[in-house]
Amino acid sequence: MENENTVIRVRDLVKKFGQFVADDHLSFDVYKGEIFGFLGANGAGKTTAIRMLCGLLEPTSGELTVAGLDGFKQREAIKRRIGYMSQKFSLYEDLTVNENIRLFAGIYGIPTHIRKEKTEELLEKLELGSARKKLVRDLPLGWKQKLAFSLAIIHDPSIVFLDEPSGGVDPVTRRRFWDLIYEAAHEGITVFVTTHYMDEAEYCHRVAIMSAGKIVALDTPKALKKEWDATSMDGVFLKLARSNE
């Protein structure tokens, strides 16, 4: 299924820390506009994998192409083409909404006139216009989450990486947040998301499940449920975990 729509291409990717093999021969493709879920328990190798994809870590061996760029030699260039949102929705709490927008637009080198346009657009979409001069620390959690996501894609990246983006957020807020994710995917941004909420896994187009440094399953939620004879992703996950013991 390899084609020009491949945004992330991973082949036999290995990362070792000394003797410890964190990621063991990972191979998968992610396509343009796809929402790709990355599941696994803590310590399964998710974080290491996402760090390599973001250009933060150099892989030990294998092949890695992100947005058409080499994951070994062009790590700095990759950083310009991706967005990243961490599980802490890391914004600067002591800066206002406007100042956060200005800062991140500045870091990604967005020219002033485009920044102003984008700021208005973003504030309107998030219905944050009235809060633009508020400090981020005074915003409700759900708003912070949406703002963090919008800032992660403010520079129109090819891919946005979301590292457990829904920690501590209630299911209703989570659902609204996923509306934003669908919208971004619809606009052609590829979304790579790690999560341990199984309802979120259902929202993904395809999911990969990791265990002990390996990908043990990769398919659409529907196909996985069928294969493992489960009614929910939760069931798939449990059965997979048992079969790997």
């Binding site: 250009g55 950083k79 990243y84 961490s86 802490k88 870091i107 990604y108 990486f161």
Partner: peptide, 14 residues
Amino acid sequence: EMGTMEILLVSPLK
């Protein structure tokens, strides 16, 4: 601590 360092490291800032 706030996790913003991660964001900065992933950004194009050297």
